[in-house]
Design a protein around this nucleic acid. Structure first.
Lengths: 344, 344
DNA sequence: CTGAAAGCGCTTACAG
DNA sequence: CTGAAAGCGCTTACAG
């Protein structure tokens, strides 16, 4: 390993000078600078990142905290797209990403503590927001640069990027209502995630506004997994009174819903219509293609990285703490009751 | 920030003693140990990871080098699954993962140099193997702990996890032949990836072994993207003589193939049969469900992490350098010519 | 424009 | 069983 001292000796200058050449200090003669640079090149010098971090108290690294075990994570393609957005921006900005997954919920706080208090990272990105999350309050109390994908009620210091999920679900539901549906169900995600709650609220508002029935047995909570959508169907479609349309929390879940419906002998959209969220690449290729709310997943990730790094770089953060990424409904066959002519 | 010195002062011992308590040194009286531990707890001590790394010359971090820009990456769900495997094991083993994406190919070597020579990571995982990759030879020359998902011909020092892709493609092709097909095409990936080459070779062997025609216009090279499969169809299905079956390099591509065929008015499997690779979760839910070679993607990632960490921990590496993960063909409707009765 | 010195927070032989 | 000292590889006031 060639160090700054080796370069200094070879160049006949002091280590301080070499350090200054590396950091492009202004008051260095161009003669010294180019000589030192040449020698660094020749000797294959690479700065020791750890040593630099130790003194600069900065790591140029961001932690991505994966929600719960990695095990279940990437089954939902949403996260891949989110990571893609984060990674693209952070790479441009010169930051590395530390991917961490907690093995257990208790372990989660410990992991973050280790990274945050151990000064291993300069900021944290939380990929999903749970209701009253102890992690969030801890990071807020420490005033540690943090960006949350989602929302949090109490912590004002935390940055967040989100969609207007309430409005998005309202739009999805309204779309079904405009197609003539009056019995609309909701296949939701885990109720401890704010995104589930917000979408549920939008669904409710749309129904109430139109004076439509809000049946509790038409609302099914589950996970963000195909399996979950599949299971929801075995329940919902065996009810006495079945919904004629469904709002589904996520495309991966919608794939399961589709699968379940097919197996039970129901046709989409003829027997039942579907609108979902996230608009992953494959929803277009499903059969039938799935109508989905595009929430700008990539943009969500990209913006999260952007906000966080901005916050880290200029401390007095004059920027806004919360950004809402716009959504839009992509209508496809799954929600068009009878393809050529619209009902009503 | 509370440091080891603060703890030492508060406990009335020397910093060395505190350090030894932390690392569970044997010759420390249990009295001192418990006192120091109590005080650490009280004062909220967390070791500075950078300082520790600097002296221990170890980072407990692995770099995952993403193939080329993150931009195109997660569109293929294969990588999500791979990451899941890697992450699960590395978390268990107490290693963090640094996710790095190069903005450009030239930039790639620079990025790795920075991490490797800068002693930022203890090992590197390369997610895909290109033919005569300069990165691989560099890492091999440095004798830096590296595991490659794929294969490399020259570098004996590099660890690798792979499938027997030649045999896998042979199996896929043979399956189609056994269904009675004689005109079989191949929708491949980029020819600079070893996986593309290996699968191509297996496809060839199966055809030759049966004395079947090997038409160059039935072999189309592209990317690992849906789009690519779609485009391949507009070409292949406009030929005078069309294949009656296709081996497709990857499920995401197969989705594009399916999409293209549907648009062109061809039915699967009636008009053309398909077998693909990777067996991502959604291939089962396509319509028709796609026959696919399960290559144990998760296992591939898990094993990669395992081999690399083992290599890092006990230097004299007596373990094997190359591991092959078994594959198996999952037959679904897309390759069953006429569902109930088999042809021939 | 450049150098000597102190220090970032830890670990680890070397003594005792 | 414990402490003092040196050192990991860098940066940064402080002088000049």
């Amino acid at each position: 390993m060639v160090t700054i001292k080796d370069i200094a000796k070879a160049a006949g200058v002091s280590p301080s000078t070499v350090s200054r050449v590396i950091s492009n200090h202004d008051r260095i003669s161009s003669a010294t600078s180019s000589k030192v640079k040449r020698i660094m090149e020749e000797m294959g010098y690479h700065p020791n990142i750890m040593a630099k971090s130790l003194v600069s108290k900065t790591t140029k690294t961001l932690a991505i905290m994966l929600p719960r075990p990695a095990e279940e994570l990437f089954k939902d393609f949403f996260f891949g797209e989110l990571l893609r957005g984060i990674l693209t921006h952070s790479t441009i900005a010169g930051y590395d990403m530390l991917l961490t997954a907690a093995t257990s919920p208790m372990d989660e706080k410990e992991t973050v503590s280790r990274l945050v208090f151990g000064r291993r990272v300069d900021g944290v990105i939380l990929l999903s927001s749970r209701v009253s999350d102890p992690l969030i309050s801890m990071l807020d109390k420490q005033q540690f640069p943090t960006v949350l994908i989602g929302r949090t009620d109490e912590q004002a210091g935390i940055l967040s990027v989100d969609n207007d999920n309430e409005q998005a679900a309202y739009d999805a539901t309204k779309h079904l209502i405009l197609q003539g549906h009056e019995r609309i169900g909701f296949v939701s995600g885990p109720p401890n995630l704010t995104v589930s709650l917000d979408r549920m609220a939008g669904y409710r508002r749309a129904l109430q506004e139109q004076g439509l029935e809000l049946r509790s047995e038409w609302v099914v909570e589950g996970e963000y997994l195909q399996h979950s959508g599949y299971r929801a169907m075995t329940f919902l479609m065996n009810l006495q009174e079945r919904p004629s349309a469904l709002v589904v929390i996520d495309d991966a879940v919608a794939f399961g819903v589709l699968h379940g419906l097919t197996e039970l002998g129901f046709a989409v959209p003829e027997d039942i219509c579907i609108v979902s969220f996230n608009n992953i690449a494959l929803s277009e290729l499903a059969s039938p293609p799935i109508s989905s709310i595009d929430i700008g997943t990539y943009q969500l990730g990209y913006t999260a990285s952007q906000m966080l790094i901005r916050r880290i770089v200029d401390q007095p953060s004059v920027h806004q703490n919360r950004v809402i990424i716009p959504h839009r409904l992509i209508v496809r066959e799954s929600s068009l009751l009878s393809l050529p002519k619209r009902v009503k």
